[in-house]
């Protein structure tokens, strides 16, 4: 096995082109575990942590955020401004693994590992994230929820890799939240995860909503039906129940060692309600509405 740590995006792309069996590594918290357990044995590991553009969190001109693909969770968790704008996304990333894992694990790696249960993924999808993909034809932006194709597989072309996740500018009167269910309190994998983003109009109705569901289907579910049930409402009980029903209908889970399909569908509803409550509280706290 060959290991390379290029210092530019171009040289990383060249290395990927030179070897069909090459694999990009950011934090390595999934890849190295997979290699150790014999699940993957790439002939070439391309470590992207030495590429300076990939190592920063910057605010864009429009007030959004660009988070480099090599930025680990621990860094996001200490980023006061990012956390103020997108606490749900940062918390989702922070739920991954332990403190030691946080020092390495990246939200982009979480997305590209394409596990149905990655915590950062529903968090970023609900936040409305896109990712910037580098390839031999230059750069393109893709909606985050379009990246995973199936468990362990992405829609990226062979010689492409994600260089950043982009979060939009946070609208006024808005808030995001992510909750997951695990039987323990940490060091576990989501049995269900729900990301919710809500923006309120001045009259107190929901102006904008996004809902993302994790671990209940082969890939993250960007559930527009559930969001639509909330938009225009004032989060009346019927609106929330309609969103819960839509989210439950969008589930396509399996029974596995981590939980039953029945439990997942049930728990999606429970967590959606709780996530809506947190997102609402965050949106209202910003404008002192309560």
């Amino acid at each position: 096995m060959q290991y390379s740590a290029p210092e530019t995006i171009e040289s990383a792309l060249k290395l990927l082109e030179s070897d069909d069996d090459a694999r990009v590594m950011a934090g390595g918290t999934d890849l190295i575990v997979q290699m150790t357990s014999g699940m993957r044995s790439p002939s070439h590991v391309v470590d992207i942590k030495r590429i300076p553009e990939l190592c920063g969190v910057v605010q864009t001109a429009d007030g959004g955020w660009k988070i480099g693909a090599a930025v680990p969770g621990a860094e996001l968790n200490e980023h006061v401004e990012l956390k103020r704008d997108w606490p749900g996304f940062v918390e989702a990333t922070d739920l991954i693994g332990s403190m030691q894992v946080q020092g390495r694990a990246t939200p982009v790696g979480n997305l590209c590992n394409a596990s149905p249960a990655g915590d950062a993924v529903p968090g970023m999808v609900a936040a409305g994230a896109t990712v910037t993909v580098a390839g031999s034809n230059g750069f393109r932006d893709v909606a985050a929820h379009d990246v995973p194709a199936a468990p362990g597989r992405t829609n990226l072309e062979k010689n492409e890799f994600v260089i950043a996740v982009n979060l939009p500018p946070k609208p006024p009167n808005s808030g995001d939240a992510y909750l997951r269910f695990i039987p323990r309190t940490e060091m576990d994998i989501a049995v269900v995860g729900t990301g919710v983003f809500l923006a309120f109009g001045e009259s107190g109705h929901v102006r904008e909503a996004r809902i993302a569901l994790g671990a209940i289907a082969p890939t993250v579910v960007f559930c527009t039906e559930a969001a639509d049930a909330l938009i225009g409402s004032r989060l009346e009980e019927e609106a929330i129940e309609a969103a819960v029903l839509a989210a439950r209908n969008a589930c396509n889970p399996i029974d596995d060692k981590r939980g039953t399909a029945e439990f997942r569908v049930h728990t999606v509803g429970v967590l959606i309600k709780r996530s809506i409550a947190i997102a609402t509280q965050r949106a209202k706290r910003q404008v002192g509405m309560d």
């Binding site: 039987p183 323990r184 994998i189």
Partner: peptide, 9 residues
Amino acid sequence: LDYRMPVAS
């Protein structure tokens, strides 16, 4: 990971 022993928290 999936043989779930309690953790300290």
